[in-house]
Design a protein around this nucleic acid. Structure first.
Length: 577
DNA sequence: GCCGTTTTCGGCCCGACTGTTTTCAGTCG
């Protein structure tokens, strides 16, 4: 099955290899651009090619050559040039590109002079002091590479982003639902609890038919690479890509108990079993028992009810006070998708987005939103064609004009303004004062000391026209560590100045993370769940941000973009008075 | 590799930072 993200990955890999080979930088850029275009398509590439072959040529940056490669990918599932290029470099060399401070030129240099093709070999050469003699490298570069290797290793923990697990699991579950007789089918484990990363996946099923049929369909799935175990009611497989999935087929009468047990967390279950004991009950994956008699187990609601508790949302099951709150009938009413009224951080073609203002409004309305803030990059982010004062003024005018045409929909003229090294913003106060919503971001000089980074961020929070700090720690899950920044001080400043902090919903970011979001909520700082969307489909990333907010016990009141547009405007106005 | 009322060649969004240099190469976003 052709997929947009797989094709994008192929194009990016081609670009990496060409880059290392020293190919024309614009040729490399063309592949990277094509990867972005394909990734941002609203329609599966395979369907688009069949439905309207000419549509490919209308895509920006897709010419004759890339057109042919896309068609080849859709027909054959791969691209000849890609296979050839991959064969021209030792496996492992591309991995070196993931190490911060190593780019294509240095990877090529390391390979050609020292024959380095793996992270291990690189580390050994650095420790042996072999790097400092290379052209353009000294002791500092050597030390920095060693530090980068350590960071890289600490980020690659064998767990995958939740969204990656979702992408793998969704078609797998659809495949299993096709088995005759299947009744319930639910993923459990940390996946169901919505942890930001997932180690392996647990799936529970019940069937009217034979468990063996379900197990067989499970192990014969096309993406299965290895079958680790296969029994009458349980099997374990490893999929292409390395993710392990365990399936358990349980008796219908025990489904709720099994789902509860395998959802965890372990800490939640320990606390729950001790509560059961106080009630003279025994709780296991098979049910709730009084002596030998089963008193509950068919559904999770039944299991919790047997312990005189309301059902507890999986996101809260970490033994962080949820059982006590449930016992007092004081569980929070967690924020839900239907509460979200708009997105306060999206991009358009004015900077690096795929749709213009009207296009973004249309796709936001299609998702039931009542308002949208247009927040393109500011001029410091030159690569994204960020807006300077003049272009921003023109955009504000355009937004105001479009806003007047819209019925039952509010449009905020906004910006994602860059916080410079000294904590000042890269646009004048005059133009910032004309805006309806200002999101401030740090993109540059992010390796300063904790004191300096914290001071910068607080300076941005104190700025009278800033409303919200975007992706406050800058971390990329599995790719980049958070900035050195004192989040206690940042949250305290946001509280004092009545500013919001973003939960960036991009599955790569989830920033604030759940701990910081929880700290913000306790401090009374509104969080704003934004997608930072650059195209239509990224608007749907909102669900990942919602999970973070739910795990942080956020109710609708705690989340700025569940408020009405009028309430947001009033919140800003009150602050200025 | 793409693109074109400067059209089939010769351009192609750029600025900051770092470490290595003494004028610049490489990386990052």
């Amino acid at each position: 099955m052709p997929s947009n993200s797989e094709l994008a990955a192929i194009f990016n890999t081609i670009a990496d290899i060409l880059d290392i080979q020293g190919a024309n930088v614009f040729r490399v850029r063309a592949y990277r651009n094509a990867a972005r275009v394909v990734e941002q398509l609203s329609e599966p590439i395979g369907e688009l090619v069949v439905r309207d072959p000419k549509a490919l040529d209308r895509l920006p940056g897709i010419g004759k050559g890339l057109h042919e490669k896309i068609v080849e990918y859709c027909q054959r599932g791969t691209i000849t040039e890609y296979e050839e290029l991959k064969g021209s470099l030792p496996a492992g060399l591309l991995e070196l590109l993931n190490i911060p401070s190593l780019g294509p030129k240095r990877v090529k240099l390391l390979y050609e002079t020292l024959g380095i093709t793996t992270v291990e070999a690189l580390e050994a050469a650095a420790l042996a002091g072999q790097l400092r003699g290379l052209p353009g490298m000294g002791e500092k570069s050597e030390a920095k590479i060693l530090k980068s290797i350590r960071e890289y290793r600490s980020l690659h923990t064998g767990r995958v982003q939740w969204a990656v697990a979702e992408a793998v699991l969704t078609p797998y579950l659809a495949h299993l639902r096709g088995v005759g007789g299947i009744r319930e089918l639910e993923p459990a484990g940390s996946y169901r609890r919505g942890r930001e990363t997932v180690g392996d996946l647990d799936v529970l099923a019940t069937t009217r038919g034979s468990p063996a049929d379900v197990i067989a369909a499970f192990t014969e799935y096309k993406e299965v690479k290895d079958v680790l175990a296969q029994g009458d009611t349980k099997a374990s497989v490893v999929l292409q890509g390395g993710l392990q999935v365990d399936l358990r087929v349980v008796p219908p009468g025990s489904f709720g108990a099994a789902l509860q047990y395998f959802t965890g967390s372990k800490e939640h279950n320990v606390a729950l079993r001790s509560r059961a004991k106080e009630y003279g009950l025994k709780l296991s994956e098979y049910g709730v028992f009084r002596e030998e008699k089963m008193v509950a187990g068919r559904t999770e609601e039944e299991v919790y009810a047997a312990l005189e508790l309301p059902w507890i949302p999986p996101e809260l099951r970490e033994n962080r006070g949820e059982i006590e709150a449930a016992a007092m009938r004081a569980l929070p009413r967690l924020v839900e998708r239907g509460d979200i009224q708009g997105d306060m951080h999206v991009h358009t073609t004015a900077s690096d987005g795929a749709l213009d203002i009207r296009g973004m409004v249309k796709v936001a309305r299609a998702r039931g939103y009542r308002y949208l803030a247009i927040t393109d990059h500011s001029k410091a982010v030159a690569i994204a064609h960020g807006l300077d004062e003049q272009r921003l003024r023109a955009q504000i005018k355009e937004i105001r004009a479009i806003r007047r045409e819209l019925i039952d929909f509010d449009l905020f003229a906004g910006i994602e303004v860059d916080v410079l090294r000294d904590g000042s913003l890269d646009l004048s106060d005059e133009v910032l004062g004309e805006l309806d919503f200002v999101v401030a971001s740090l993109h540059f000089s992010t390796e300063l000391s904790e004191a300096e980074m914290t001071r910068r961020m607080i300076a941005a929070i104190e700025h009278p026209f800033v409303d919200c700090i975007a992706h406050p720690t800058g971390r990329l899950i599995g790719e980049r560590l958070p900035y050195a920044v004192d989040m206690n001080a940042v949250i305290e400043a946001a509280r004092a100045y009545h500013k919001a902090l973003e939960i960036n919903a991009s599955p790569h970011r989830l920033d604030l993370n759940e701990q910081h979001a929880d700290m913000a909520r306790r401090a009374g700082v509104p969080v704003c769940i934004n997608t930072d969307a650059h195209c239509e489909l990224e608007l749907d990333n909102i669900r990942f941000g919602l999970t973070v907010a739910r795990r942080a016990w956020c109710t609708p009141d705690d989340v700025l973009n569940t408020w009405s547009a009028a309430k947001i405007r009033e919140w800003r106005a009150r602050r200025r008075r």
